[in-house]
Design a protein around this nucleic acid. Structure first.
Lengths: 161, 161
DNA sequence: TTCACTGCAAACGCTTTGCATATGG
DNA sequence: CCATATGCAAAGCGTTTGCAGTGAA
């Protein structure tokens, strides 16, 4: 069962998506809203394949093609953001009412952490002025070893992965 | 013909690579040095396919498998860095005596610009302390519209790409 | 001599595309 | 109605792997 704020959020994103589809002449199909719902049913990162499996397990009849297509729409209306964490696989994340943040990727266990630092905004502003470049978005990933893997390495020296 | 500083640089990286191979029990094959030479023959970004084509055009007998294998070694000994600019294709860049920098990617024309900002180091330091995470490297990409495309859009509103 | 390295081609995994069918407007 | 969206399967494309032959040590 969804908690109150979650329902509230879902109502909002549904409306945003609905408006977006209307304004851009896209059809409001049940599949698109089912995918939006699935994306907003949990908080973490996901990739297309896991979303596909997740929906199949719930007996949704959905195809990968539609997932890719719909994610593209969700990216366009800013309800989802896309990340590449160094591998050739796209990761996605719901972004409505989710504070702007960046990522720490542990190269031993693959876990992804989040952090915020206002100084990134200063960097963007400086670069915009300096190079006359209009910055629309950014991606900052820090790679290294998280505290869990750091302590494990001290005893076993075995990467987990 | 190579200019003086270029030759100097190539002598240095050849030695670094040679030492690295020796210390790690890897063989010093002519292919590996040919690839290193090719990588250090120009300054910009490249991907595996263009490196392959470039070497084929010079009548090197080289395979993609060896390119991937050798790039892995060059990454390991820090003579090359790897980037993902939002697409599912890896970009590489020689990194010896090349100042640490980050990238601006124009989403209209695909051009990649470079910039430096010392504040990124401060962010890394803060996050390391805050989350007890050992940061080994980072990737900061700013996406947007470069000045060339910005002015072109004003007249034609046509993305180039 | 030996075994890591090579080239080649096939396999792999994520993503895109083609096409017949279904359906929102 | 019919243009857009869908599911499915095949194709694309960057990357990885398997294997027989090669050559560095």
């Amino acid at each position: 069962m969804l908690s109150e704020p979650e329902t509230e959020i879902f109502d909002s994103v549904k409306e945003i998506f609905s408006n977006y589809l209307g304004e851009h002449g896209h059809r409001k199909t049940p599949e698109r809203f089912a995918i939006l719902s699935e994306v907003y049913s949990s908080e973490g990162h996901f990739d297309i394949e896991s979303l596909y499996v997740q929906m199949k397990e719930k007996n949704y009849r959905v195809s990968r093609a539609t997932l890719y297509n719909t994610i593209e729409l969700l990216l366009d209306c800013k309800l989802v953001t896309k990340h590449q964490f160094g591998k050739n696989i796209a990761h996605f994340e719901r972004s409505y009412k989710y504070a702007q943040h960046d990522h720490l990727i542990c190269q031993d266990c693959g876990k992804v952490y989040e952090f915020c630092d206002p100084r990134i905004q200063n960097i963007k502003n400086t670069v915009e002025g300096l190079l006359n470049f209009k910055v629309t978005n950014h991606s900052l990933n820090l790679y290294g070893t998280c505290k869990d893997c750091h302590s494990k390495q001290e005893s076993t020296n075995q990467p987990i992965n």
